[in-house]
Amino acid sequence: MADQASHVGPYPEGVPCWVDAQLPDLEAGKRFYGGLFGWTFGEGYGTSVWAYKEGEPVAALAPKVNGRMPTVWTLHFATPDATALAERIETHGGRLITTPTRLGPLGATALATDPESAVFGIWQPGTHQGFGRRHEPGTFAWAELYARDTKVANDFYGALFHDALFGPGASPDFGRADLAEVFPAEMPPHFLVHFGVTDAEEALGTVQRLGGRVQVPPFDASYGRVAVVTDDQGASFALLQR
């Protein structure tokens, strides 16, 4: 997908446009992801840092504000109007964790859950459009929603993002799967962020060398070869070899 690696301009509504991780130790996060993906880092908004690949923004790392927050990667969907989308989320059975908030000139964001309590973010761009690069090694490649009831998920996200999922030329960058096919029954529904790698086995070795661990060994999915891992602070993500 090299032809789609570099991106300019706002993403269509419903397309994943940004990911961030909330971590206890920001410096440790920079060492881990810099070592795994070759990311460099610069100042982000507030206390966060932005990760860059070949000079383009690809993700953010942020410190957890309290120990009760999960150590997790969060997926954000693009929207031209965060307030209107927030209203639709609640109308269709979701719940707002935070109401739309403007982050200076960068844009506006909110956190929400779907009807099964899977957490996601929304992003209305200002000066920050989202991923500067994607669909290549070391950048966002896919997101999979692991749901208890995929019909509930399809109905909810189809109502919110019909054109991105089902419209002409749709390229949603996220799928829906049965939670029980990959994870233990007690695992809550969640989005799993996938980063591209050239060689999944080699990348798994690097994850372990950097202090991470393998959560689910490599398996074949419809969109590529996937392994689920955690970083050295417990945040889960997936490696995707196309």
Score class of each variant (00 low, 15 high):
Asp3Pro: 07
Asp3Gly: 13
Trp18Asn: 09
Asp20Lys: 04
Asp20Leu: 05
Leu23Trp: 00
Pro24Met: 01
Asp25Asn: 14
Leu26Cys: 05
Glu27Lys: 14
Phe32Cys: 01
Tyr33Val: 06
Phe37Glu: 07
Phe37Asp: 07
Tyr45Met: 08
Ala51Pro: 08
Tyr52Arg: 10
Glu54Pro: 01
Leu61Lys: 02
Val65Pro: 00
Val65Leu: 13
Met69Leu: 14
Thr71Phe: 00
Asp81Trp: 11
Ala82Gly: 12
Thr83Gln: 15
Ile89Thr: 05
Glu90Asp: 08
Gly94Cys: 11
Gly94Pro: 06
Ile97Pro: 01
Pro100Lys: 08
Arg102Gln: 15
Pro105Gln: 14
Pro105Met: 14
Ala112Glu: 14
Glu116Cys: 09
Phe120Glu: 06
Gln124His: 09
Gly126Ile: 10
Glu136Met: 12
Pro137Ile: 11
Thr139Gln: 05
Ala143Lys: 01
Glu144Asp: 13
Thr150Cys: 01
Lys151His: 07
Ala153Lys: 03
Asp155Ile: 07
Phe161Leu: 06
Asp163Leu: 09
Gly167Leu: 05
Ala170Ile: 02
Ala177Thr: 00
Glu181Thr: 11
Ala185Ile: 07
Pro188Ile: 06
Pro189Met: 07
His190Lys: 10
Gly196Tyr: 02
Val197Asp: 06
Glu201Ile: 09
Glu202Ser: 14
Glu202Ala: 14
Gly205Glu: 12
Gln208Glu: 13
Val214Lys: 02
Val214Leu: 06
Val214Tyr: 01
Tyr223Gly: 00
Arg225Ile: 04
Ala227Gln: 03
Val229Arg: 01
Val229Thr: 02
Val229Gly: 00
Thr230Ala: 06
Asp232Met: 03
Gln233Leu: 05
Gln233Glu: 10
Leu239Ser: 04
